[in-house]
Amino acid sequence: MSATAKKTAPLPDDIRAMKGGVPIVSLTAYTTPMAQLLDPHCDLVLVGDSVGMVLHGLPSTLGVTLGMMILHGQAVRRGLSRAMMVVDLPFGSYEESPAQAFRTAARVMAETGAGAVKLEGGRGMAETIAFLAARGVPVMAHVGLTPQSINTLGGYRVQGRGAAADAILADARAVAEAGAFAVVLEKVPARLADRITAEVAIPTIGIGASSGCDGQILVVDDMLGLFTAFRPKFAKRYATLGDDAEKAVEAYAAEVRARAFPAAEHVFGDDAPGATS
């Protein structure tokens, strides 16, 4: 193979093979420009249903529709060339039955070009994961805090403390045995995340879990400081783009009101450049 051959996006089996190796780098994206920024650096890009909160102003992920996920998936796909794209299945689009989940996942993959889908749930979704995997749909699972279930979980609380740890471990084992190629561990104690990572055969991808996971994911708007409505404890801000953008808009507004913008270099004269008469 030529040393200059273009790197292709990893497949689910490639992600699975990263278990125990160099940590998997993952972020969310919802637009083409953001996907283009992430593509050189990420192994996996998730079109998350967090789009409902960070871009559409929804109070939770529960109002996100299948149409929204497909639209944003198509946008992200246009910005990727080397990272694998995974698309979230939104609330209400897969829980009814394995057959419903297959119809939804097949449509998402066909219309977005996604390499896999992600769904929330542990033991209760094992049958569905097995059904999808047997029919050619790669599945990334998601256990611990599952945002689509906040009304039954009592909010965005840490999951798996004390005696509850065994249930989260059982969930992770169940999705791995059902055929998921990776599992997101959200907002679980670090010791539990390390135990799950050691005991399941598929990669664990942490968000508010442990540095010992096989990979990490963050909502890109949290990481860049673009989403400022609230700041999860686990979301390190690597930039403050929201603050920078606000300052830029303030400066623009001031210059417009003072007639300082547009200046001479931003407007056009009567003659074309280089005209002799």
Rank of each mutant, 00 (worst) to 15 (best):
L226W: 05
A182V: 10
L169E: 05
I217P: 02
I196S: 01
F234A: 00
T204D: 01
G208H: 02
T197P: 04
A229T: 13
L241Y: 05
R195I: 03
L169T: 12
L185W: 07
I207T: 11
K187S: 07
R195A: 08
D194V: 02
R259M: 06
L226H: 12
L185C: 03
H142C: 08
C213I: 15
Q216S: 08
L185S: 04
P138S: 06
V139S: 00
A253H: 10
Y156T: 14
A201E: 12
P138R: 04
A190G: 13
A174M: 05
A174V: 12
D222L: 03
R135Q: 08
A229Q: 12
G155M: 12
E250D: 14
E186Y: 13
A193V: 13
A235G: 08
F230R: 04
A201Q: 04
G212P: 06
P262D: 11
I207C: 07
P147V: 10
V249A: 07
G154Y: 09
T197K: 10
V184L: 04
D244S: 14
F261E: 07
V220E: 03
A167N: 09
L153I: 10
G225C: 04
S210K: 02
S211W: 03
R195W: 02
T228Q: 11
D221I: 08
G162T: 15
R257V: 15
P189V: 04
A251V: 03
F230L: 11
R135G: 04
A182C: 11
S149E: 06
V200K: 00
M223C: 14
G155C: 07
Y156W: 13
V139G: 00
A235S: 12
F234K: 02
A258Q: 14
V184I: 14
E177F: 03
T152V: 05
F230E: 12
I196E: 01
A264Q: 13
M140W: 00
G225V: 06
R231V: 14
S210W: 05
R191T: 02
Q159W: 07
A141Y: 00
Q148L: 01
S211K: 04
Y252H: 13
G179C: 03
D194T: 08
Y252C: 09
L241V: 13
F227Y: 12
G154I: 08
K187I: 06
A263E: 12
A164Q: 10
C213S: 14
V188F: 08
G154D: 09
R173Q: 11
Q148M: 03
V137W: 01
F227V: 15
T204H: 02
A239V: 15
T146Q: 06
I168D: 01
G136V: 02
E186M: 12
A253S: 14
F230A: 10
A165I: 02
S149T: 12
K247C: 10
H142L: 08
G225Q: 09
R237Q: 06
A251H: 08
P203R: 01
A229F: 14
A229Y: 03
E246H: 11
A164G: 06
G179V: 00
V220I: 15
V143W: 01
D244E: 15
L192P: 10
G155D: 10
S149Q: 06
A264P: 07
T146M: 10
L145E: 02
L169W: 09
G242F: 11
A209W: 03
F230N: 07
T240L: 10
C213A: 15
Y156P: 14
V188G: 12
G206R: 03
G162C: 10
V200Q: 00
V200I: 15
E255I: 07
G155I: 07
Q216T: 07
R257H: 14
P262I: 05
